[in-house]
């Protein structure tokens, strides 16, 4: 049993590392606090002879240990924020210049619609190829920047590729542009992560990641299929 699904995109490992970093801080916080709690419960259990301490924490001398705890937490918090910022920037704030493949992925009750650019290589032109059926499989090349235009036609959906740590909502009226680069071939499930109605749990498509040549062959077949 692995805690995480296999990490297959360029930023997936960074996210896993971030998880372990937070786990380190959270675990330290948890064990220290629980340790003090259990120690106090055992050490200061009731006895008629015991004279309890009477400090109220109103002076800094008494308060310093709590202040130290808060300062440590603040340090941990800001270290996490500092550490994660590069990943955030990479994922969210910068879409790479060279778009090797630009696909529109549109949520619909209850499957994903994929729009591939036609032979002219441009999206949103007349020769776009649209794949619109439940459980369909699309193919994308490995080691390439794949840019998704995430859209929705009815309710809010959410594209979730758990192996790629890729999840963005599809909001009606907005086009959200995000990118991903896979570095391991395979067939990955595309899950909808936002409640979208009755058949939410059956909303499933696949993404097949494969080498450039195989992908090109599939794309040619796709174009040929529409030309019929």
């Amino acid at each position: 049993m692995n805690i995480f699904p296999e990490a297959v995109s360029t930023y997936a490992h960074e996210m896993d590392k971030l998880f372990w970093l937070i786990t380190l801080f959270a675990g330290l916080g948890f064990f220290i606090t629980i340790g003090i709690l259990i120690y106090s419960l055992i050490r200061f259990r009731y006895s008629p002879q015991r004279k309890p301490m009477t400090f109220r924490g109103n002076t800094f001398r008494e308060f310093r240990w709590v202040a130290l705890g808060m300062a440590l937490l603040a340090f941990a918090d800001f270290y996490v924020l500092y550490d994660e910022h590069d990943t955030w920037d990479k994922m969210m704030q910068s879409v790479p210049e060279e778009k090797d493949l630009h696909i529109a992925i549109t949520g619909r009750q209850w499957n994903w619609i994929f729009t591939y650019p036609g032979p002219d290589g441009k999206l949103y032109t007349a020769d776009d190829v649209i794949i619109n059926e439940p459980n369909s499989t699309i193919h994308i090349p490995i080691h390439k920047n794949v840019v998704f235009d995430i859209r929705s036609v009815d309710v809010i959906h959410s594209v979730f590729l758990k192996e790629a740590r890729f999840k963005y909502d599809a909001i009606p009226g907005r086009t959200i542009t995000k990118w991903v680069q896979f570095h391991r071939p395979g067939k990955y499930e595309l899950i909808c992560a936002e409640l979208c109605g009755v058949l939410h749990s059956k909303m499933r498509n696949f993404i097949m990641v494969e080498s450039e040549e195989v992908f090109q062959q599939w794309l040619d077949e796709l174009y040929a299929g529409t030309n019929e």
């Binding site: 709690l37 200061f44 004279k51 309890p52 924490g57 709590v66 808060m70």
Partner: peptide, 15 residues
């Protein structure tokens, strides 16, 4: 801070 204050209240008492 609040949770730690409660833990500090327990610490050193006669529980």
């Amino acid at each position: 801070g609040i949770i730690l204050s409660y833990v500090a209240t327990i610490f050193g008492g006669n529980i």
